[in-house]
Design a protein around this nucleic acid. Structure first.
Lengths: 218, 218
DNA sequence: TTATATTTTTAGATTAATCTAAAAATTATT
DNA sequence: AATAATTTTTAGATTAATCTAAAAATATAA
């Protein structure tokens, strides 16, 4: 079954908005995430339901069918592999690749993406630490915890982000908070929830907002 | 000025159908090359004229404006660079890359394509021997001559094709008629216009149809 | 549990790209 | 030059994706 760019973006959005497989996603959430209107979403949901990519009950929100989930993961796989390509081979920065990957992810060829996967030597994560599904849609979700939930003196490695905006990523880069960097939580400031962490022998302060969006493997 | 996939395909088609810059391309030719109907072409020509990509006079066919030509060359540049990437980095065969490049050429990013160009070490030609315009749209047209126009005992190097169909390319590959291969024209058979050429010490026969579509640098 | 607020859907338009069928213009032929 | 053939354009529909405004359903609160 062929899917249009638009349909693929809806599937991806529904996938990303599902905390777990069973929980329904509502119309307004999809509309917001795709910068469109609820009425447009309703129209598209009917279409995706006809194509058996989603389970849709009027007024009750939607879940992905196995077919829809497979398709969504395929698009996410493509997105993340293209991001790796852009960063590792074409020297893009991690804050520059998202929009390009949004276009590249819609190139329809499993052969292409599997060859790209091989060319990149089967990376497990993209430049932001997000896992890359393999050709069967399988991937392990690494146990990552935001700094905001860690106790003092915890030692860990920066392994992902919850926020992908270029502004945030540029800030992290400038501050040395890059993937793979070892850090230690030193102290939480009660007043505003900010944190003091140590990185390469230096203590630095990060806001609660940053701490919430920076993921650590311990 | 943003262009849609469709508009880009029209610009490319008009470019490819122009033997030289001044000569007008007619509606039916465009329709045939894009597998669409003349009425659809007329609609699109009006749109492209409004956007100042083409000079369009009713019933008189079209030519590209400098802006349209620039845009067409940019798309062709992308197409050919992606083909090089697919063949050199992802191990695709020269007969497998066209359709994929047709999709990839519409990714909108000059930065991406310039980085790709650099990554591929600024190739001058694509896997079929067609020249790749540089970032300013400049390229040299190599002096290539079809075998059918060469005299006996001419020695030359296979450097391009006039026909890009997978069937033809597969046949060439199988027969050893690949880019860079040195050949000598031995004899033309008057009866059917076929040729005997020598390649790697062997004499082989090729039909007139093949001879017309295989380009040689002498 | 009735009234209010929110969410979602429907109804009806709009835009881009396409189509068929018919009309108009151009080109070729007697 | 008049007629026939071909090419191109117009007129009017269609489809996918979108929108606004209004109606319907669901959720929340007095």
């Amino acid at each position: 079954m062929i899917t249009s760019f638009t349909e693929e973006n809806y599937l991806k959005s529904i996938y990303h908005l599902s905390p777990d497989e069973g929980t329904a996603v509502n119309t307004n959430a999809i509309a917001e995430s795709l910068n469109t209107k609820a009425a447009s979403v309703t129209d598209m949901l009917k279409k995706l339901a006809d194509k058996e990519f989603i389970n849709y009950i009027k007024y009750q929100g939607v879940t992905l069918t196995p077919l829809g989930r497979e398709r969504a993961l395929n698009i996410i796989r493509k997105h993340r592999l293209w991001e790796v390509f852009l960063v590792e081979k074409l020297n893009f920065k991690w804050d520059e690749v998202h929009d390009l990957a949004e276009e590249l992810e819609h190139i329809h060829s499993d052969l292409l993406i599997n060859r790209l996967d091989e060319f990149l030597e089967f990376p497990k994560t993209d430049p932001h630490g997000d896992p890359i599904p393999d050709k069967n849609g399988k991937f392990n979700v690494p146990e990552l915890i935001p700094i905001s939930r860690l106790k003092n003196e915890t030692l860990g490695i920066i392994s992902g982000v919850r926020e992908h905006s270029p502004l945030f990523l540029k800030y992290l880069e400038k501050t040395g908070l890059v993937l793979g960097q070892e850090i230690t939580i030193k102290e939480q400031i009660e007043f505003d929830g900010s944190f003091i962490i140590s990185i390469k022998e230096n203590d630095i302060m990060i806001s609660r907002e940053v701490a919430k969006n920076l993921l650590i493997a311990i």
